[in-house]
Simulated assay, not measured.
Amino acid sequence: MVDENQRDERETQLVPINSLLPADSPRLAGESVDHTELLAHTDAALPPILVHRRTMRVVDGMHRLRAALRRGQDVIAVRFFDGGEQDAFVAAVEANIAHGLPLTLADREAAASRIIRSHPWWSDRAIAAVTGLAAATVRTIRGRTGTDDAPEEISRLGRDGRVRPLNGAVGRLAASAIIAERPDAPLREIAKAAGISPTTARDVRERMRRGDDPVPPRQRPGGDTGPEDPAPGRPAAVGHGWADRSAPARDGAGAAEGREKAAILRGLRNDPSLRFTESGRALLRWLWPRVTGPEGWEDIVLTIPPHCTYLVADLARRCADEWLTFAEEMEQQARSMA
Rank of each mutant, 00 (worst) to 15 (best):
C308I: 08
V215Y: 02
A231C: 05
E298Y: 12
G171A: 10
T140L: 13
E9L: 15
I154E: 10
T145V: 15
V163L: 15
I127G: 02
A110Q: 14
W288K: 00
A249M: 07
G267A: 03
R10G: 12
L315K: 12
G223W: 06
A95R: 13
R234P: 02
I97Q: 05
H119P: 01
H307Y: 12
R259L: 13
A68G: 01
A201Q: 02
G100A: 05
E4Q: 15
M1P: 14
I304N: 01
T303E: 08
L268N: 07
A174G: 10
A45D: 10
E31M: 09
R275W: 06
A194K: 06
A194T: 00
H52Q: 05
N270C: 04
D34W: 08
A191H: 02
A243R: 00
F81V: 05
P186G: 02
H99Y: 13
V130H: 06
D107G: 10
A150Y: 00
A191N: 07
D34M: 14
E152N: 12
L20I: 04
E181F: 04
L315P: 03
R317N: 02
A175H: 11
V75H: 14
S113R: 15
L315E: 04
A334Y: 09
A247D: 13
T147Q: 14
V130I: 12
W242D: 01
T277I: 10
D224V: 10
L302H: 09
K192H: 11
P120N: 02
V58A: 10
L133A: 10
P227T: 10
G61D: 11
R209A: 14
R188K: 03
H41E: 14
I179F: 04
D224L: 08
L133C: 12
P48K: 08
S25H: 07
F326W: 13
R172E: 06
T140K: 15
H307P: 02
A110P: 03
P183D: 04
P235W: 04
R210T: 00
R269M: 01
R188V: 00
